[in-house]
Design a protein around this nucleic acid. Sequence first.
DNA 1: TATGAATGAGCGTTCATTCAT
DNA 2: TATGAATGAACGCTCATTCAT
Lengths: 228, 228, 228, 228
Amino acid sequence: MSTLARREREKRQRRNEILEAAEAVFSEKGFKGTTMQEISERVELSKGTIYLYFKSKEELYLSVCVKGVAEFGEDLEAAARKAGSLEEIIRAVYMAYIDHSLEKPAIFRVLRDTFIEQVRQNLSPATIEEISGIIRSWLELESGLIEEGIARGVFRRDLDPYGFSLTAWRMSTALIELALLKEPGVAERGDLDRYFEQSIELLIRGARADTKPAAGGRQGKRSTSSRP
Amino acid sequence: MSTLARREREKRQRRNEILEAAEAVFSEKGFKGTTMQEISERVELSKGTIYLYFKSKEELYLSVCVKGVAEFGEDLEAAARKAGSLEEIIRAVYMAYIDHSLEKPAIFRVLRDTFIEQVRQNLSPATIEEISGIIRSWLELESGLIEEGIARGVFRRDLDPYGFSLTAWRMSTALIELALLKEPGVAERGDLDRYFEQSIELLIRGARADTKPAAGGRQGKRSTSSRP
Amino acid sequence: MSTLARREREKRQRRNEILEAAEAVFSEKGFKGTTMQEISERVELSKGTIYLYFKSKEELYLSVCVKGVAEFGEDLEAAARKAGSLEEIIRAVYMAYIDHSLEKPAIFRVLRDTFIEQVRQNLSPATIEEISGIIRSWLELESGLIEEGIARGVFRRDLDPYGFSLTAWRMSTALIELALLKEPGVAERGDLDRYFEQSIELLIRGARADTKPAAGGRQGKRSTSSRP
Amino acid sequence: MSTLARREREKRQRRNEILEAAEAVFSEKGFKGTTMQEISERVELSKGTIYLYFKSKEELYLSVCVKGVAEFGEDLEAAARKAGSLEEIIRAVYMAYIDHSLEKPAIFRVLRDTFIEQVRQNLSPATIEEISGIIRSWLELESGLIEEGIARGVFRRDLDPYGFSLTAWRMSTALIELALLKEPGVAERGDLDRYFEQSIELLIRGARADTKPAAGGRQGKRSTSSRP
DNA sequence: TATGAATGAGCGTTCATTCAT
DNA sequence: TATGAATGAACGCTCATTCAT
């Protein structure tokens, strides 16, 4: 019995070791650029052994994502449970996303890749849907905060809550991307810290109930579905 | 004489046809995911023929970059020269970026790739610097508009103009990325159109002089330079 | 334990099988003319498998060289240790060279290639020097025999011992080359056997102390260093 | 009419220019290593044009050989017609072969390649037979001199005249090969000059009627036809 | 006659995956 | 369970040859 338990434990541990090695390599080289050989060398296991735990390169990639998303989730939920005003909570969640990403760039990169078409082509729809579902649930979590803000009259009535969350997520993602470059090229490393703060400030201020509409708005002239 | 001229013209045309096919495939599959075979099938030429015009896959990729970036720049500058209020111009530039990207996703992706560490490995430092320089000049162009807005009292005095431009650029980039996915997964295609509009609206409103600071701001606790 | 040993043995064996197949094909077709495909078909392994044992076509070729040269040397030294008169020993070494070459044409060709400018381009200077060194030591070995012959008054005093060895080596090399042609074209196969015997007979007789100088000798009019 | 003549002349000239370029490249790179591209660049004609004059790479190679053989032939025949004793004539022919080879190494190399199995495989039997035929006729020419020597009692009765010529040809070929190396490795450049002289001296002395048989001769134990 | 664009078979090499041990 | 040898399809690229102009 305890033997079985130990076996089980060891098995899970092995699995985890593989996941960590894979995370590192996928993050560095991308999906296509990563070879099972390199992962296997990093965990010091044979290629064949990896296939005992994951039935394909893709499944391994998916598992890395799922693991990463789970780690992220705890941080974000903790931030959302913090005491404070609504705006403080929103900001805290946003900052938690940035902090976690900067601390674990490998996970950030792997998750980000999942939203790049080129990488997606190597993934099955099921994989994509699984990851998308988790991200969606985060966005809905934050969406709920915005809705509460609208209900309390803090935010504009015409604000799209889900759209706000999505925008905040994408904005931070793209800024983090820049911060993770060895040679940002378009911004100083130090400036980026301020930009993180300023960017969420912009969004929150812009969502406030007391702002006036921007001039010269377009009315849906363009459509994303017009793409070939 | 005219024969030579026509030959020259046809040669250039062929080269262009190859570039267009390559642009399409690189955009869909990325550098690693693209095969010379697929490009050749798309132009309906043999693989060998492509090598008459470009001496390697890498050179072909770089040529796609160079061609696209120039086109892009023209669109943005045209938008910046439009008549209208400052806010209208800022919005116009922003929308030009989005429109061009949705129409020429290949070029968009090439530009975006320049800011993804993994993909940089396929690019020469010279190319990276060239593209970074162009992006930087775009950001400075828009920065100038913001500064003018601050001077006129339209925007907050504590707003960082370059940071604003950078944020707007990164935000739109990440949203476009989402819009270019075959299966966005986290948003409906139609909703994204509204999000584009809402996102720039948020930034512009947030930049206004008459907004109050958001509550609970952090003071530089975090630092991007703490990364390994 | 014995499992490991057997594995190791089998691995070495595989490696050897590949080397033998490669030796055969390189010998027949030369470096450029040989394809990994053909080698793989000969060992009845896939192309990929070969790359598990040798990391490139070049490394495979060099491994063939190193293996063969050692075997060759043993034969020659054995011949030099045989009992008999000086002339008999010289003849034995000469014949050992021919016999070994005809039996292992691949190795012969590898050695010969080392002295063909065009083929040298595929070899590293280190490899060339290594093989040259081995040949040189063979020539010095035989040179010693000649010197002894001169000392004993069997051979002419004005004979250059190293030159004699070199001449014998080159002469046999070029005759073997002819014998290895599928279609000699300039000689019958059976005749070549006699020519081998006659050629060494000519050299030995020509070296004897009791011959008179040939008439009409030239005095260094020509110079090999006049080449561009 | 004179127009036709000029055309004919120009055509022949073009053909010759191509042959010269091909000779140079074949000599440097060997048959397989030579590309039609490189030849065409050397003559400053298009690849297509070469195919107007020669219907394949092989035919071009053959033509280079035939041209080379013809050039050689004149020198050799001139040497054979010289006044002097039989031995002097034999030596003169031998030296003419060496001198010509050192002066025109390109031709020497191309001809030599034709007697290397690896190169032969790329040639049709007809090509090989054509070249072999010419070489054979040279050997028969010299053979005649030897027979005359035997008849006059200068050379041994048991000497095989054709074998002697063949041996002399192969011996000189292999020594020239060494002299043409950038880094002979096994002999000093200056020494080779003496070796040329000594080598033919050895053969001629060895052929003399007044020498005694070498001790320890083998009796056809080995056979070149035992090869696979 | 001369061109050079175009071809396509074939090259050396890589790598996700399988399977006997 | 763990291995690592083996596979074979696919990759980027080359080059002798053809053919419309």
